[in-house]
Design a protein around this nucleic acid. Sequence first.
DNA 1: CCTCAAACTGAATGATCCTTCATATATTTA
DNA 2: TAAATATATGAAGGATCATTCAGTTTGAGG
Lengths: 194, 194
Amino acid sequence: MATLDAIFEATIQLLLRDGPHRLTTTRVAERAGVSVGTMYQYFPHKKALIYALNERYLDALGDRIEAACRAHHGAPVDRMIDTLIDTYWRAKTGRADVTRALYRSVVEMDNEALIEVFASRADAACAAMFASAPDMTVADLKRFNLTLLTVIFGTVRNAFERNLSPNEAEELRGELAMMCKAYVRTRMIPHNQQ
Amino acid sequence: MATLDAIFEATIQLLLRDGPHRLTTTRVAERAGVSVGTMYQYFPHKKALIYALNERYLDALGDRIEAACRAHHGAPVDRMIDTLIDTYWRAKTGRADVTRALYRSVVEMDNEALIEVFASRADAACAAMFASAPDMTVADLKRFNLTLLTVIFGTVRNAFERNLSPNEAEELRGELAMMCKAYVRTRMIPHNQQ
DNA sequence: CCTCAAACTGAATGATCCTTCATATATTTA
DNA sequence: TAAATATATGAAGGATCATTCAGTTTGAGG
């Protein structure tokens, strides 16, 4: 619905421009071009609005990651790593404003549940993907998976919060990929590869 | 001063127990065992209180990192990496409550300046340390340094926000160290080592 | 054109909160 | 001890905000 989208967009913009403690129901409504009452027809609380915003975003992010993982079943591990980094990085920087706004809104409420759900989805999707790699020979796949996800997600977030120049960001991304691949090689039991 | 410490402690406890949007000057004063007026003798705003809290923490963290770096001048690179991870990890998990409370308070204000200062300190200290390693042969030290810091700090934070079991956390820490060292080996121009 | 329901409106309400300041208490100085 | 200075108090002012609801607008169906 157009009204709903307008409300979400307004929320994001205000979150970005003024920060979370200036995020007023009145202001959101005003910027969205509707009245406060209308907002309360879609969301019972202000919290519900922010919750819905995060849910929307994390669902979409989960979808993208699952799709990327599914699309690379059976690929070589190195390729999987490139994909994972690329997907996550692009999701974050593609609409950097949304990412930033949501990072800021996270504190407002108990969204640990949402994050938990997202983490589980990503965990499962990636574990399945890695398990399908023909050249995969790591002993403890669960540990391997947890490590990669934590490092990649954490690094991207941290990179995102420091104000890196596009150049630095691009470099960092390449280094991160290299690092993950080096880790894989450390963790792999030698088999009979090139 | 005792009063100041009481106020800081009260702030941390309330931040943890009730979250940032329940952090009231009145409540902080009450829990600290002083009156609101007293608080305003130490801090002109509520923002100033939170700012001071973050400043305090980041200064201390910067001190620890600088000390660790200084103490390992001339050590082998692998040892430096262990030290860096260990120092940061311990600082975060040592008083996990404080860490968590501050992560939550960050949103309240423009503390980008504080973070910037901290990042610069850490950058400089680590760069100097790495440059002093006898076995250091990476071409682009700046890039190397940025990568390591971003990955380590980002991973630790991310690990901290997911509710990992102590076991998982410990495992992850080990894997992170291994990963960083593997990266170093990738980045080093072969010389004449073992 | 009329009817009815769905969607929208925004002033009013009640609650919460930051900040101030006139006053009181403690501590130091003379 | 008395005056002066520093520190502490907390009720009250003034502002902001989430939420409500009585009434208005819109638009589809007859």
